[in-house]
Design a protein around this nucleic acid. Structure first.
Length: 436
RNA sequence: UCCCGAGUAGCUCAAUCGGCAGAGCGGGUGGCUGUUAACCACUAGGUUGUAGGUUCGAGUCCUACCUCGGGAGCCA
């Protein structure tokens, strides 16, 4: 294997720079078509796929025999001349001079025909090699990079939140419990409370990491382990929070449009839907959203949170993400600040993605008054002692502050136009999936 | 936790009213110098999820269980 290390490797994505030259490519056999005295080998190297043409008369008998016997996903090395050619997928093809099999693959489970999702998820470690999955995870990479760039350029500091937490942060969802020496610890469901502490220390902060929910949810929008980015800003109100969320999401979409045209084509995404995502986004009051539902025959009960079908009805009214604000305080978490103009309502906002993708952002202004927060903790029947550090933030220089959380996988699913979030994360963790 | 649906060849699926378990892909063999999920011919490949029941006869009908998928609730 030592012979195959090459530090100046040429990659398929840059093959146009080598038009007319003789180069060596390293990769895997994506597919082949052997037609008598002519062989078409599709080399995949992670950055793209190139068709390599081998005429029986142009290579030694031994080399042509290798093409005949090489199996799908065998690792290979091909030397040849690069030519622009309309007939070739990708626009360039290679005329083969030499071809070596680095490691002959056993019978590869993922054939070029159809497979079911369960089978593919069981072979997730191999499925990544497929064109579409490769494109999705490249777009995920762009989204994550764009998220970090957006905040870094705007003076935010990245503050990592802990994964082990001592108690339920919000007391709503079911948490994964783990032994922590002689006590219990729980896997985090949100870094937000810690970000509030960090915002008081650094001004503008965000965390980006995995989040865990032990809910027995089996829907296309749910994972038990997912990634979330949570910015938090001191001296910011709900309006500022919505401004931030809007600029943030628009920036992410723009970056994908700039960087991933090729991948968007592979996954057959309707790009015009993404091009429409420019500020300003519609901002509607909970009462307006309720009216939309009433007008569209929903069984929605005023005062409740919206169900999945309700979110779809609301988002379908717009061709951009829509921000719904000021939900009834009763259906929101204890740390949400109540609207001084209507104390029954919370200064909160959810952003619903277009095309029925549901909630991608949840956030709002936080309660900054010590006595009010204390009362809410008691009302929600939460252990007061666990929240002393959180109450300290109101004891020592409390300020208005706000933030939100954005779910990475739902954002990727929306931007890529996917049916299910399980394809948006390299190795999905679902209620019935812990392998591979 | 609740509701709905599905388990048949390595994979994707078919099998009429309960009547001989089949096809495509993938594997193997042979053929083909411009293929695009190549094509053509031949070939191997089955405890029909498990356990019971009804029947002359069960992939098909009944009961239970197992596994998986979709959805609800909850949420990002």
């Amino acid at each position: 294997m030592q012979n195959y290390i090459n530090r100046d490797k040429i990659y398929v994505e840059n093959i146009g720079e080598h038009d007319g030259k003789t180069v060596t490519l390293y990769g895997w056999l994506y597919n082949k078509r052997v037609k008598g005295k002519l062989a078409f080998l599709l080399l995949r190297d992670g950055t793209g796929i190139i068709q390599c043409v081998m005429g029986k008369n142009d290579v030694s008998e031994e080399v042509f025999e290798r093409a005949d016997k090489v199996t799908q996903e065998s690792s290979i090395m091909i030397t040849g001349t690069v030519h622009a050619d309309q007939r070739a997928p990708g626009g360039y093809e290679m005329h083969v001079q030499d071809f070596e099999i680095i490691s002959l693959a056993q019978e590869y489970p993922i054939t070029p025909k159809e497979h079911g999702t369960t089978f593919l998820m069981d072979h997730r470690h191999l499925w990544h090699r497929s064109k579409k999955q490769n494109a999705i995870l490249r777009i995920r990479h762009t989204i994550i990079k764009a998220i970090r760039d957006f905040f870094d350029k705007d003076g935010f500091t990245l503050i990592d939140a802990p994964v082990f937490t001592p108690a339920a942060c919000e007391g709503t969802t079911t948490l994964f419990e783990t032994d922590y020496f002689d006590t219990k610890a729980y896997l985090t469901q949100s870094g937000q409370l810690y970000m509030e502490a960090a915002a008081m220390a650094f001004g503008k902060v965000y965390c980006f990491g995995p989040t865990f929910r032990a809910e027995k949810s089996k829907t296309r929008r749910h994972l038990t382990e997912f990634w979330m980015v949570e910015p938090e800003v001191a001296f910011m109100d709900l309006e500022g929070d919505m401004d931030l969320a809007e600029a943030f999401v628009a920036y992410i979409v723009q970056r994908v449009l700039e960087s991933n045209q090729e991948q968007l084509k592979v996954i057959e995404r309707d790009v015009s839907k993404l091009e429409a995502v420019v500020p300003p986004f519609p901002r509607i009051h909970y009462d307006e959203a309720a009216k939309i539902l009433a007008d569209n025959g929903s069984e929605f009960v005023f005062g409740d949170d919206f169900g999945a079908a309700d979110e779809t009805i609301i988002s379908n009214q717009f061709d951009k993400p829509v921000m719904v604000h000021r939900y009834p305080a009763a259906v929101k978490a204890f740390y949400m600040k109540n609207d001084p103009e209507n104390p029954e309502r919370a200064l909160c906002v959810d952003m619903l993605a277009p095309e029925g993708y549901g909630e991608i952002i949840g956030g709002g202004q936080r309660e900054d008054d010590l006595e009010t927060l204390l009362r809410k903790i008691r009302e929600h029947d939460l252990p007061e002692s666990s929240f002393q550090w959180y109450l300290d933030l109101r004891r020592y220089g409390s300020v208005p502050h706000a933030g939100f959380g954005l779910g990475i996988e739902r954002t990727v699913a929306w931007i890529c136009g996917l049916h299910h979030v399980r394809e948006t994360i390299p190795f999905a963790r679902l209620m019935h999936r812990l392998y591979p």
